[in-house]
């Protein structure tokens, strides 16, 4: 339970930080062309790095969430019979 809370907290923190660093004022110190990263202007690589980092953070979060869910009785997740009618 604590591991789950910590993982959710850190994920929330990552995305809040990302928002700050890709908008005003967090982006201002990084809004420059040099140095180039992989041939891209620094500001472009900087924003792309926050996007790529999001994948890593979400994968890590998912590992924790998954472990937590497997400890619990499983929810119905086959989606086979909603009241609106499934496949016939």
């Amino acid at each position: 339970m604590t591991a789950l809370r910590l993982a959710r907290l850190l994920t929330g923190l990552y995305f809040t930080t990302a928002l700050v660093f890709v908008t005003w004022p967090g982006l201002v110190p990084f809004a420059r062309a040099r140095p180039f990263v992989l041939g891209l202007p620094f500001a472009m690589a900087w924003i792309a790095a926050w996007v790529a980092g999001a994948v890593v953070v979400l994968v890590l979060l998912d590992r924790v969430e998954r472990r937590h869910r497997s400890d619990e009785p499983r929810h119905r997740s086959d989606g086979s019979s909603g009241p609106a009618g499934g496949p016939r």
Partner: peptide, 19 residues
């Protein structure tokens, strides 16, 4: 120019809460 970077920035931010 760099104004276009806004399109790169918002997608991951907007999608994450959907987890």
């Amino acid at each position: 120019g760099a104004a276009a970077f806004y399109i790169l920035a918002y997608g991951a931010l907007g999608m994450a809460p959907f987890y």
